[in-house]
Nucleic acid binder design. Structure first.
Length: 658
RNA sequence: CGCGGAGUAGAGCAGCCUGGUAGCUCGUCGGGCUCAUAACCCGGAGGUCAUGAGGUUCAAAUCCCAUCUCCGCAACCA
């Protein structure tokens, strides 16, 4: 401990403990881990923080559905997430949970402090309030004369109290900071997005408390309120270090400000606007960098439960191993644009990089050492000019990897590293050890070649450690050496290598794809059965309350208030500047109606024209995107999976449906 | 005219900031080798770098302008 090492504080976003994270979420932890391990290797004193975000309405609802307390729910999910991170061999120093007692206490202190110093103020939110729906609606949502957009009832003007954070007051300081720290937000495009979309138009004060649900950190001086999400979640980065309002703590003093927050691009706004402003209000320094990584898509689709295309890390680990999955994620994700996961590319990359290039190289080299030298590492005393190329490559690989990693171009770093293994394979071809072995007089040369190969593999293993720690260990074991210093000549001649073992067995692509398809069918079947079971007995499934809960019972009379009619779609066109809305002209036998419907993602106008649909004929009119909508047509599903209910062609127009 | 990004060989990407032989991986075709996991090595084919007989320049994938298409964010989702 003579020299204090330079510190490096790195964090992932905390994962929302509502459900098991998919491979896209897992990517973030893997990537952050690779950087953390790399920095440790470079001699930094690294502190790597990850954890779970455990409050909020959604979790409250999920727990209720499951019939358990939110705390119990969150204990389960958080534990699962942590297990997943552990399985992926991530080297975090701390796993924080926002239900952690200390975190809760500090958030409360901060809230109070902000309130006392005038950054947080209590205001009355005034808006239209619908009593039956127990909800607020904005001016633009409300229908004419203040009718409820949900149920059509007459709403009242109502005031509700809420706490707001004076974001606006810090706007200029934030902009100045971002502009004077060009590296603060990366990639660059995200920075522009933030500045142009949010900061320059003027920051809105942020609502930082809620009264509509209970599962959150209570505001100490006003117990109707709980602290709303981001003030709670973001502060994990410092509460984890023991920060408190009047007692900063040793870890905090040592590690703050963060060197980099690794986050998904979807939460850029919170990390590059609100979080810095909270810190300014605390009088604390801002993080040095927020790196907004892209997302993994499945094929070309966003991964989503409803599309049934979600991949989970543990599932992939079964097929490809921990390092197979780590390697794929790290090598495949581009720097700024979204990456695509497909099973085919997973297999291809696994075979090409891991089995053929790296695995086979190690295997053939160790085997030759066994075969020609009884496993004793020979001395390199018959060098030839050709060898310099290999050494130069090793040197350049190091520089290249360091360079790429320092700018978080992880995929580039991996590619450069594998270039070294590739060069070593070529070296075998150039030197043809099996030919040298036939000539006793070339023994010294043969030994030199093998030494160079073993040494190159050793150096490669040093650099592989941050990406695939277990594989690096396995390579060192086969080399019979654990010298992880990146300098040519670290292997000791005369020592013994270990036993050759296959690092990555080749995967039969066709066979595995067939296997996976089979599993997916099975999963689909299981899901279908589970869904059916849910419908019959709407009990509480813990994971994924897939079906929307059944609404409270109503009487026949109240149902009959809905006037449903058979109507013909006579014309249909998209609504300008909207990607979900279609404007439909309906004929219900004499009367015609204009209706706007949010189904454009699923239907083309031509799909609808000439079809008969069910119209809710007595729904209060509304304006959508400025277009008048008088009624709605019945459809099921959400987002990208909406199905309109069509009626038989021979049903007369205007027929009442019940 | 909301903001931003992207369009480069069959596929996936790099190069663009700091103009000057268009590169990598997979696939494909041909050859070599046998130490090794049917692996490894070499070579070929395949690109008018979205479009504009546009602008700047001795020189444009790279800088500027216009158009088209896709994506993300925002808005909208009766």
């Amino acid at each position: 401990m003579s020299q204090s090492k330079e510190k490096f504080y790195i964090t992932t976003a905390i994962a929302y403990a509502s459900r098991k994270p998919h491979i896209g979420n897992t990517y973030e932890v893997i990537m952050t881990d690779a950087v953390a391990r790399f920095k440790r290797m470079m001699g930094y004193d690294v502190y790597f923080l990850t954890g779970t975000d455990e409050h909020g309405e959604k979790i409250e609802v999920l727990a209720n559905d499951a019939g358990i307390t939110p705390q119990t729910y969150v204990d389960g999910v958080s534990g699962e997430i942590r297990k997943l991170w552990d399985m992926m061999n991530t080297s975090y120093d701390q796993f924080i949970r926002t239900t952690n007692e200390n975190h809760v206490k500090v958030v409360q202190h901060l809230f109070k402090k902000f309130y006392d110093q005038g950054d947080i103020y209590k205001d009355e939110y005034e808006g239209w309030y619908c009593v039956p729906c127990e909800s607020f609606f904005t001016e633009t949502q409300a229908l004419e004369n203040g009718k409820c957009p949900d149920c059509g009832a007459q709403m009242t003007r109502k005031k509700e109290e809420a706490y707001y954070f004076r974001m606006h007051a810090y706007q200029d300081r934030l902009l100045a900071y971002i502009e004077s720290h060009p590296d603060f937000i990366e990639p660059e495009s995200r920075k522009k997005e933030m500045i142009n979309n949010f900061i320059k138009p003027g920051l809105q004060d942020l609502c930082v408390s809620r009264t509509s649900f209970k599962w959150g950190i209570p505001v100490t001086f006003d117990d109707k309120h709980v602290v709303y999400v981001w003030l709670d979640a973001l502060t994990n980065y410092i509460t984890a270090l023991g920060y408190d309002v009047d007692e900063k703590g040793a870890l905090y003093q040592k590690y703050w400000p963060a060197d980099v927050h690794m986050i998904g691009k979807d939460i850029t706004r919170f990390h590059t606007i609100y979080w810095p402003i909270f810190l300014m209000a605390m009088g604390e320094p801002l993080p040095k960098k927020v790196f907004c990584h892209p997302w993994f898509l499945f094929g070309n689709d966003k991964m989503s439960k409803s599309k049934g295309n979600v991949l989970y890390a543990d599932q992939l680990v079964e097929k490809f191993g921990v390092d197979g999955v780590r390697h794929y994620c790290l090598a495949e994700m581009p720097y700024a644009s979204d990456g695509n996961i497909t099973i085919e590319s997973l297999i291809k990359r696994y075979n090409a990089d891991l089995a053929n290039n790296l695995g086979n190289l190690v295997n053939r080299t160790i085997t030759m050492t066994k075969k020609y030298f009884d496993g004793i590492i020979p001395a390199p005393n018959a060098e030839e000019p050709l060898d310099d190329e290999l050494k130069t490559c090793a040197k350049q690989t190091y520089d290249g990897v360091v360079n790429a990693m320092n700018t978080y171009h992880v995929a580039d770093a991996v590619e450069i590293l594998f270039g070294l293994y590739s060069r070593a394979n070529k070296y075998i071809d150039e030197t043809a050890p099996w030919v040298l072995a036939k000539d006793e007089s070339k023994k010294a040369r043969l030994g030199t070649v093998l030494y160079h190969l073993l040494e190159t593999i050793r150096l490669g293993a040093c650099l592989t450690a941050p990406f695939m720690p277990a594989t690096a260990d396995a390579i060192f074991k086969q080399l019979g050496c654990d010298n992880r210093t990146y300098a040519w000549g670290g292997l000791t001649a005369g020592a013994s290598v270990g036993e050759p073992e296959v690092l990555f067995a080749r995967i039969d692509e066709k066979k595995m794809i067939a296997e996976i398809e089979e599993e997916q069918k099975e999963n689909a079947r299981a899901a279908a059965i589970a869904n059916a079971a849910l419908k019959e007995a709407p009990q509480k499934g813990k994971e994924e309350p897939a079906a929307e809960p059944i609404q409270p019972e109503i009487t026949f009379d109240s149902f009959m208030k809905n006037d449903l009619r058979c109507a013909l779609v006579t014309a249909c066109e998209p609504v300008a500047k909207s990607d979900k809305l279609l404007k439909l002209q309906l004929d219900l036998g004499g009367e015609s109606r204009q209706v706007v419907s949010g189904i454009a993602k699923c239907y083309q106008p031509d799909d609808l024209i000439g079809k008969k649909v069910i119209l809710v004929a007595n729904l209060a009119p509304a304006k959508l995107r400025g277009v008048e909508s008088c009624g709605m047509i019945l459809a099921g599903g959400e987002d990208d999976h909406i199905k309109v209910v069509f009626l038989p062609d021979d049903m007369p127009l205007g027929t009442r449906i019940r």
